[in-house]
Each structure stands twice: as C-alpha cells, then as structure tokens.
Design a protein around this nucleic acid. Sequence first.
DNA 1: AAGGAGATTTAGCCGCGGCTAAATCGTAAA
DNA 2: TTTACGATTTAGCCGCGGCTAAATCTCCTT
Lengths: 249, 249
Amino acid sequence: MTDLVPSQSEQDYLKAIYHLTYGEAKERTGPAALAEWLGFSCASATNMVKKLTERGLATHSPYQGVALTETGEKVALEVLRHHRLLETYLSERLGVPWEKVHAEADRLEHALSEDLEDRIDAALGHPTTDPHGAPIPTKEGIIVAPATQPLATTLPGTTVTVTAVADENPALLTYVADLGLVPGATVEVLRKGPFDGPLHIRIATTEYALGEKVAWAISVMVGSSDASTGVEHESRGTHGKVKRMKAES
Amino acid sequence: MTDLVPSQSEQDYLKAIYHLTYGEAKERTGPAALAEWLGFSCASATNMVKKLTERGLATHSPYQGVALTETGEKVALEVLRHHRLLETYLSERLGVPWEKVHAEADRLEHALSEDLEDRIDAALGHPTTDPHGAPIPTKEGIIVAPATQPLATTLPGTTVTVTAVADENPALLTYVADLGLVPGATVEVLRKGPFDGPLHIRIATTEYALGEKVAWAISVMVGSSDASTGVEHESRGTHGKVKRMKAES
DNA sequence: AAGGAGATTTAGCCGCGGCTAAATCGTAAA
DNA sequence: TTTACGATTTAGCCGCGGCTAAATCTCCTT
C-alpha cells in the first residue's frame, strides 16, 4: 500500500490543479500552466501529474491535460478549507494585514491537524468566506460559490457589489484596499477605455481608472438586492456547470 | 554560499541537541542519544551531526560527542521559542488540551514567521512560561531557567511547589493533571520506597504513590516563599554553570 | 499537405535525508 | 594485557522532488 496521505508537494499540485480548472471555468489544464502557477519547470509538473494519476488523485492521458478525480478534488478542498480558515483566523484574531494572510496560510495549512481545524472553525463561528471574499469549503468538501463575474466584464452603467478579490498578489491587495475596493463595497462602472484601456469606476464619490489586471482580479455580484438568487450550490459530482469564481486563495 | 536558513530537519536536530545537553546538565551528547530521541538510526544522526558541524552550528570531532555553537544554540532557542509560544497560544486561545499541545506545536513551529511570532507573543501579553511550566526564550535568545530539581530527588519531609512537567508524553501528562500535579501545585513529599519503589506524596489532603518515571518528569522549586532567589539568568555565553531544567517541551 | 512553434514527455542528473551493513574505535571486564 | 561489546563512523543504497537537455507530439499557419 502506498502512502495514505498525500505529501505536501502533492497537496500543492492538487490545489493548483483545482485553481486552474474550477477557478477558471476550464475542464482540464496542462503541465505548462501548472508549472507557471507553482514556479516549477514543465518537466517537474509532468512528473507530478503522472504520480498523482497513478495514485488515483488525477486523471491524465498524454497530451490530454489533467483533471482531478473525486478523491483528488476532495483532498484539494480539504487543503483549501485549511487555507481559508487560517486566513480568516489570522486576519480576525491576530490582526495580520489583508495582503499578508495568504502567504502565512500557505505555510501553515499543511501543518494543521483536523482537531485544530475544528477548533479554529468553531472559534470563528463557522465562517463561510475568507477575508478576501472567497468561500470556505465545508468539512464535507462542499463549496458554495456565489454567482459572480469579474469586474472587467461588467457593462458600463451598472452598479455592482464587490464579493471577492484574488489574494495572490500582496501589492494588488494593498492597492485595491486603499481604494476601498473590498468585499461588500459598492462600485459604479462608468466606462471602459479602448482596447486594453482603463476601466473607469466610481466608489462613493471618487472616480478611479483601473488597469486590466486589477479589473480581472475583482469579483462582483450584479445588482445588490435579491440575496437568494445570488448563490448556487456547487459540490463534487455536480453535473450542470455553474459560474465559478475567479478569485483565488 | 550555503543556505542561510537551516532546514526543518536541521532545526529538529539542533533542538534535540539542545534538549540532550542543556536539558540534562551534560556538556555533549552522542549520536546514539540523538538518534533515540528523534527516532532515527545512529548513522543518520552521525551524518546530520557532520553537516551541522560543517555549517558552523555544532562542534564535533569523531568519538567526542556533539555540542552546539553559539549560532547553533541561537537557532535552537528560536525554534524553542516558536514551540513554546505556540503551545501557550493553542492552550489559552484555542482550548487545545494540555497533553496535545506539544504534538501540535511540533508541526506548526517550522511554519511560523517572525511576524506571526510577534503577534502571538503580543496577543498573549509576552508570556514567560508555556502551559507545562517551561520557560519561553526571549527573541534575543535568552532563557530564564528557574532553579529547580526533579521531584524524584526531593528529600522526604519537604514541601515543594511544582514548576514544570515534561511535556513529551501525553499519557503521563493526562495522569499528572488528573492528580492535580500542575505548575503551581503544592506537594508534600512523604517518603520514598526502597530501590525503584514509589515516591509517596500528598497533594491537598490526598496521598499518592508515584512511579520513578513520573517523579523524574516533574520539576519542583524548593520552599515557596522567596521569589527573588527562585530564578537565575542563563544566557548564551554564560560561564558559570547554572542548574538547568529537566522538563522538556 | 508541409512546416514550424510551442506544449508535452522522456531521460538522466542532483541534493536532501532517511536506511542497512560493515568497518572501526574505546572502554570495561576477563 | 587481551578481548569483547557497544558506540561511532563509513560506504553505499533508496525515494522524493526539484532540474536541464533532448525527443516527441499537436496544432496552426502557410
């Protein structure tokens, strides 16, 4: 019998595959995207993909891309739960600033026991989203993804509510936080510059021009009234594809 | 230039060397003791000792035993600080039971950033001892060791105060906690059985007979009145040897 | 249909940090 | 003094998870 529990590296790859498929509305990814995401070489990614497939955590045939199996996705969601619970705890209880919690959680997530996970969850009152607005998977591996879209694709003239901000980039986080572009904020989309031009928005009474990268990192919910239609359930085994979040963490 | 920061394995070995020398009033240890402490083979211990010596973290000549250099001890004390701060935090803020905090902290200590260390330290109000009574080194690598002795060597007829309990063994911790033998408790030593016989003690109004192992795991402070003579300063570079704690964590 | 660029895979290397087996040392007992 | 045993060291192996270089495949363009 091979090791029952995936190694830290394996967990990192599973998390990455999850991000690159479920996070971007794609079915499968390739080693190149994985390698870039993790900062490794393509060859390393291919090797690990082969190993994960042998272990039954991913499906992969040569040149056909990778996807997670049910058990692989389950592992990824467990790691993601650890990550987002830690982010929330560090932010709420220890005052770690917004833009730093991701890096801290990345190092701590693999050392978190089930028992501690439960204690943190309880201490926080069973939170459903992390400080960046990303949903926290349940212990059973169910993740509730709000029906959102990137701010970048929002039609000018619309007023929207920010639900989440991708948390990978500290500098970007600091920048958008300064603007008040945090989950819950209301934004009026004014107009879009030509081609890759800036997106003009208004927050409260101030206008800003956002670059492409920033506009894509922000998830928004259209309208602001009806809460019940704002979420859908997404779980392992779901057949009908639902709109998934762009925001990572 | 070699890696600036010791690997997790190296840190574990440094911590072990610290325990086996400073923890037991010995000057040096051998690979055998190290190997047993960590659960590795003697050969592995010898290898690592050689590497630590090359890195300037330990001193070692063949067949002469190992000791930490100043910088090695500094690293060990940093890890120990992480460990004991985490123990305290987990116990105080997340309700992790006494006998489990050691194992949790062992996994988390290597993933703790300096920033988080400071935040935890501040959140706890800069504690000086962990839940088992062991002193927490300062950020500067100074550890204040109370002048204590094992309960096992305490003369019958004496009344002493428990200062610390070795935290490695969960079963033992549960046992002594049940008896009320926690830091701060007052114990009257009644008599010692012959040879390896039990140590009879009284806590409050109840009498107990303790085995050798338990009696050695408990550190006590003789008398209970004068606090100023109860501690001494021990720091890197101290020449005069001071009585050091038996309790580990 | 042919060519070529980029993605993917394979082959083979490396350091880390475990391991066992075998050689060597040092000491305490005969 | 010799011997034997335990502690230490050396030699050499392994899996993990990175890497580079080279081979191969896919697909898009010409």
